[in-house]
Design a protein around this nucleic acid. Structure first.
Lengths: 319, 319
DNA sequence: CTGTTAGCGCTTTCAA
DNA sequence: TTGAAAGCGCTAACAG
């Protein structure tokens, strides 16, 4: 690429020649080759974005905001899905490093992924977003899931519920284990009974919410009067299972979800849920990447949950 | 890269040397550089994916399936959003061509984008997905929006509605103009009255649905008994506006949407809508890309709409 | 079977 | 102010 075409160096070129070169470039349809530039400079102006499942609308705002933030720096996201499979996660990281992405943002971490992520971080900046890695030194942009679990329990206790349960997500995803712990400890502190049953969702999806709710209803002992689902998809699945059993929400049982996915205010009944700040997470992750690429230090970001009260919860009249 | 490491050529190498090379590669943490390979081979194993708005959950399944199909070929999607802005669209294409993507899939085309897309297609295969370009020679993976509009009108007429209206999306997106035409022509054929008012949505979003519904309700003449919104987001916005006016759906007015976004079966009332086959579109687009990259000919794909009848429509009792 | 070389398009450096 | 050359890591081609 002629220096006449490089904005930084164009002023070192005699105006006539510059214009001549520009003209020639236009005529020939010249377009700078970012691949060759990448080979030379070691920078590709791409960042790898690893998500668990694009079908979960929880990640869409993250990608959306991340892409917007990166765009200001001329960087484009390269996206891959792990489907929550550790082998795929490993292969994806490997692939991205081979592509010489400038940085990696992962919103798909499970506890078993920590080691390879840290290995990757020796080559390229890595930002851990959305799903925390509690014991890792990596930069993280996450949210206080434990506080979120407590919020849910506090809300239900405040409505007079004394016997509650959880529809739990896979506990090797730190979000779900933290939600579980927060909820359980708040129940203990508030003196309300948690009906615990062994199963957890294999994946945090609608079908698993249905399955766990069925298991809960079929279990021994009195039915809980309120349930905390570890995410909205599972809450919706739980709602469907209740509906099939002829039970109404919130009349027969209250339900709290997590994430506040798009349209959760419009479902029947409008879902009480802990808002997960996906937009803020995505934006912060983008900014962190840009800082890291500029060689600056970056600090972890910890966002707080908020409870969004709608109509799927109400005071206990069942006892 | 030593040929000992290249699966295609490794058999031309004495086993001992191959093992020695592999061992050395491992020890040094060697990782093939796909950027250098790309410079040499002219292939980057990436495809550019252009969408209008990641916030519209309509595109999520497309990306999801597309990514899955491409993955079988070791290709990763590079994603950018136009926000329905022509200037951004142009810049994004330019940027992607500079990155030497192997192909481009656009799900963001407006009629004014045809020219630059066809220019891009002279450099690299281009697949037009989801949003058609009616007069273009480019390969397209789309859906019969006109038939979808007719389906909506036929359904409403079948329920006895005799006065209907549309909440129209931006007409320079071919989907919306085709939906409009299909609906209008079916109304004429079926002998039912269409209440036409001048405005169209500037963007196919919730807020514009609200605004158009308000305008419709404030308009002169008798209120239509049923409305066809050009997509689900606008339908939800319309529902919200009706609700604020104290009108119920489907009692006071029937509503048909388009797309069948995730969770539309769970909103209140569950939305009757024309199903847009996003998954199939994404999958087909991925397969087409792979064919095109293999140098094969590719044929357009045209998928048919299906009507999903739920509870937001019912027979006319208002007249 | 293995070693060597040219060259992909760029940036950087040094010479003219 | 401009020209020329080296070299980024790879593939392809050819020589040994």
């Amino acid at each position: 690429m002629s220096r006449a075409l490089n904005p930084d160096r164009a002023r070192l070129v005699k105006p006539d020649t510059r214009i001549a070169v520009e003209e020639a470039a236009r005529r020939l349809g010249y377009r700078p080759d970012m691949v060759a530039r990448g080979l030379q400079s070691g920078r590709t102006a791409t960042v790898g974005v690893v998500v668990a499942d694009l079908g979960n609308t929880f990640v869409t705002p993250i990608i959306h905001q991340l892409a917007a933030a990166l765009e200001t720096a001329g960087i484009m996201p390269v996206i891959a899905e792990t489907q929550d499979d550790h082998g795929r996660f490993t292969r994806i990281l490997d692939h991205m490093l081979g592509r010489r992405v400038d940085a990696i943002v992962t919103a798909a971490a499970r506890v078993g992924d920590q080691e390879i992520l840290e290995a990757a971080a020796r080559l390229v900046p890595v930002v851990v977003a959305a799903r925390p890695l509690p014991d890792s030194v990596l930069v993280q942009v996450v949210h206080d899931d434990r506080a979120g679990g407590r919020l849910a329990a506090g809300h239900l206790a405040g409505l007079g519920h004394r016997r509650v349960a959880q529809l739990r997500g896979p506990l090797d995803v730190a979000n779900f284990s933290a939600r579980e712990v927060g909820f359980t400890e708040a129940c203990r502190d508030l003196g309300i009974e948690e009906v615990v049953f062994g199963e957890t969702g294999a994946r945090p999806v609608f079908e698993e919410g249905e399955r766990l709710m069925e298991a809960l209803l079929a279990g021994p002992g009195r039915r809980p009067t309120a349930v905390f689902a570890h995410n909205d998809l599972m809450a919706l699945g739980g709602l469907a299972a209740l509906h099939r059993q002829g039970l109404s929400v919130p009349e027969d049982m209250s339900m709290v979800g997590y994430n506040d996915l798009p349209a959760m205010d419009l479902v029947a009944p409008p879902l009480t849920t802990v808002r997960y700040p996906s937009n803020e997470i995505g934006r912060a992750a983008g900014e962190l990447v840009i800082q890291l690429l500029a060689g600056e230090e970056a600090e972890d970001v910890l966002l707080e949950p908020t409870l969004i009260v709608r109509s799927s919860t109400r005071e206990d009249r069942v006892g």
